[in-house]
Design a protein around this nucleic acid. Structure first.
Lengths: 301, 301
DNA sequence: TGCTATAGATGAGTAGAACTCATTCATGAA
DNA sequence: TTCATGAATGAGTTCTACTCATCTATAGCA
């Protein structure tokens, strides 16, 4: 259908209304224009088509047979479009949005607040894509992300959420106060499967802390950060983890930071494509994420 | 359906083409606009509807499920309109046109040329409404007229066709040369039924000619002008009739004007509503009428 | 790996279609 | 006869639809 011929759609609309009413005045009212506009449009359409659509009488319009036929075709067409458009608006379409983040952020930071999003935006179907690697925000794999980094991603808008400070953390029951005591306890490692090392593990910490005689290769290894947290809470040893993600445990006294130093990791950002900045769904998610309490955000308020 | 909601029809058209191709570039080519125009229109539509219709990738557009649905509704609607419009143009619709004129003009002047109109405009169905009284050119009773008058009819366009000169006419066999001989012959009257007198009858002629002893009330009376002509040709007497309508007989010598004076009647005009000046059918009839040879027209050429 | 071509998006500016205003005309009703 | 009503015409104005310039992110090729 590459050679579809369509006259001015505005004139078709004006004609259809005038034909239905057989009145330019009523058509004008329906379309919120002046009767003159209707008159012009109808005339333009007749000229474009080369046929008469109305028989004109003073103060009266009568449809020609062709005019009547065209009105019926147009009414059907416009009605089908209008019905669909109204259906689109009337049914709150559940917008599926995929948020990509790390497993720890997902579990420890976001999930507790998902009910809040559901309450405020029942039309949003939030799906969380948890992985350690950043994924494409292409609207297919994911739409929006919470990820750590330097905040500079081409084509993406990045809004800082919170810092990512790695601290030694253990249960208060271990009665640890000095780094020198570390040798007597297990180190709890969190290591991404397949990764050899990380700038934020015990090796890096030891380089900074320089605890004499400490063997940082030993200890418990978990591939799931939340398991590492559980082990620490369960007095299995000392874990090095993001303070912002164990804020609850710190506040509740289930975990403590026995000593320093801290390692500053790259902060977490909310990230989404610039092209979707005005997307109502993206905006809604953004607002929700911004309302989630975080260590730094709560402090700055 | 008074509350029909329709977004910008232009944006709907642009979207449908872009959706069908899943390419703004190809849609632009189809609609003979720039790709930018497509981009703007699609974006406007998405904002108006509040939903995303495309998933955007660099150099690529992918339809959302909603976008796909809308495209299908629109394709059906636009196709139905387009098909009807093309049908309207492709089938030469027979346009019925009613031409109002006097019986004499119809029979003696127009009918011989109807075949010419049919040849040049097979789509025009010409109907002739013959009557002595002018009728409304309202598109119902009649569309166009040939009528005599002063050429000034409100709202109507009047184009002069030919004069209307009333002359005494009789067969050459009567061997009449002088008005004084009239008493020895019958006067042939043409009188419209119900009409008492006319400014163009024998009474009016006698007032001008002042033929001694001539009784103009006597003679043969016909209600049909063509019958009066036949009677004159058949040597029944002398008729007073429009020279332009008996031109053939004059030229062929079946009738002659034996003496004066002539009475100048109001000329005949082609008359049609100003509002239909651009009507293709009216224009076609006009051209045809103007091409019919008439006494005065032929002489001026 | 770097360069070029390609296709879509954004924003400012422009053109033309859509519309308004003023006026005229032809009823129809009081 | 006068006034109200509704459609049409033409000139002028507004606003939507469009273009141009520019940018971005690939995709393909050398």
């Amino acid at each position: 259908m590459n050679h579809r011929r369509l006259p001015s759609l505005s004139s078709l609309r004006a004609f259809e209304a005038a034909a239905r009413h057989e009145s330019a005045k009523q058509a004008a009212q329906e379309l919120s224009v002046t009767p003159t506009a209707i008159s012009h449009q109808v005339r333009g359409l007749e000229e474009a088509l080369g046929v008469s659509l109305f028989v004109r009488k003073p103060r009266q319009l009568k449809l020609t047979p062709q005019g009547r036929e065209l009105q019926q075709v147009l009414e059907t067409a416009f009605d089908s479009i209008s019905h669909f458009v109204e259906r689109l608006s009337a049914v709150p379409v559940r917008q599926t949005v995929t948020l990509s983040t790390t497993p720890a952020v997902a579990v420890r930071w976001l999930l507790p607040w998902v009910c809040l999003l559901r309450d405020s935006h029942p039309g949003i179907d939030l799906r969380i894509h948890a992985s350690h690697e950043p994924v494409a925000l292409d609207g297919v794999t994911a739409d929006i992300a919470i990820r750590y980094g330097d905040g500079r991603w081409p084509g993406l808008i990045a809004e800082k959420l919170f810092e990512n400070t790695f601290i030694p953390a253990c249960s208060p029951h271990l009665d640890l106060h000095d780094a020198a005591q570390l040798s007597a306890h297990s180190l709890i490692h969190f290591r991404i499967a397949g990764a050899v090392s990380s700038p934020l593990d015990w090796v890096a910490w030891q380089k900074l802390a320089k605890v004499p005689g400490l063997d940082v290769s030993a200890g418990l290894v978990f591939t799931d950060e939340t398991h590492a947290v559980s082990a620490a809470v369960g007095e299995q040893g000392v874990a090095l983890m993001s303070r912002q993600l164990i804020n609850d445990e710190l506040v509740q006294g289930r975990l403590m930071q026995p000593f320093g130093p801290s390692l500053e990791g790259k902060p977490f950002f909310l990230v989404y494509p610039e092209s979707r900045q005005q997307d109502p769904t993206i905006r809604a998610i953004r607002e929700w994420v911004m309302s989630v309490p975080s260590g730094m955000s709560a402090l700055s308020k």
